[in-house]
Simulated assay, not measured.
Amino acid sequence: MLYTYLLSLIRTIAPIVAGWLITQALRLGVEIDPGSVESLVTSAFAAIYYAAFRFAELRLSPKFGWLLGWSRPPEYLRS
């Protein structure tokens, strides 16, 4: 139970820290070439797509899983 809680905190805090670091780098004048920006935007859209349809699969209908490449969510075995 404690492990799950700590894992949820890490998964919440990691994107916040990453966003903060990127913001600080841009503020300091780190320039990003257009190819890197395109890659970043593509990755962001892919993450948003996955998050939206994973949410829909869990909360609305398992049928949304087909939009993620498989008809049902993964099952993780606990050891």
Score class of each variant (00 low, 15 high):
residue 58 L to Y: 01
residue 10 I to G: 01
residue 63 K to M: 05
residue 33 D to Y: 03
residue 79 S to K: 03
residue 32 I to E: 13
residue 27 R to F: 00
residue 53 F to S: 02
residue 62 P to Y: 12
residue 43 S to Y: 09
residue 9 L to V: 04
residue 43 S to H: 09
residue 19 G to F: 09
residue 44 A to F: 10
residue 24 Q to K: 14
residue 37 V to D: 11
residue 37 V to N: 11
residue 26 L to Y: 13
residue 15 P to Q: 12
residue 69 G to Q: 12
residue 58 L to G: 03
residue 16 I to W: 06
residue 46 A to C: 01
residue 50 Y to W: 10
residue 61 S to T: 11
residue 57 E to T: 08
residue 53 F to H: 07
residue 79 S to P: 06
residue 45 F to L: 14
residue 46 A to T: 14
residue 13 I to N: 02
residue 13 I to V: 15
residue 6 L to K: 11
residue 58 L to N: 08
residue 18 A to G: 01
residue 49 Y to P: 00
residue 70 W to V: 03
residue 40 L to G: 13
residue 44 A to G: 00
residue 15 P to G: 04
residue 55 F to K: 04
residue 16 I to T: 10
residue 44 A to H: 01
residue 29 G to Q: 07
residue 49 Y to Q: 07
residue 11 R to V: 01
residue 11 R to E: 12
residue 70 W to Q: 15
residue 7 L to V: 03
residue 18 A to K: 02
residue 14 A to C: 07
residue 72 R to N: 15
residue 34 P to V: 04
residue 17 V to F: 07
residue 61 S to G: 08
residue 78 R to L: 05
residue 69 G to M: 03
residue 33 D to V: 02
residue 67 L to E: 10
residue 35 G to I: 02
residue 79 S to W: 02
residue 40 L to W: 12
residue 35 G to Q: 11
residue 40 L to A: 15
residue 22 I to N: 13
residue 49 Y to W: 15
residue 28 L to F: 05
residue 36 S to D: 12
residue 62 P to T: 11
residue 38 E to P: 01
residue 7 L to A: 06
residue 54 R to P: 00
residue 57 E to H: 04
residue 43 S to V: 02
residue 44 A to E: 08
residue 16 I to G: 04
residue 24 Q to V: 10
residue 61 S to C: 05
residue 79 S to Y: 01
residue 29 G to C: 08
residue 45 F to D: 09
residue 23 T to M: 11
residue 56 A to P: 00
residue 73 P to T: 10
residue 55 F to N: 01
residue 48 I to D: 11
residue 71 S to Q: 14
residue 76 Y to G: 02
residue 38 E to K: 15
residue 37 V to P: 10
residue 25 A to M: 11
residue 73 P to V: 06
residue 38 E to T: 13
residue 74 P to Q: 05
residue 65 G to S: 11
residue 46 A to Q: 15
residue 12 T to S: 15
residue 10 I to V: 13
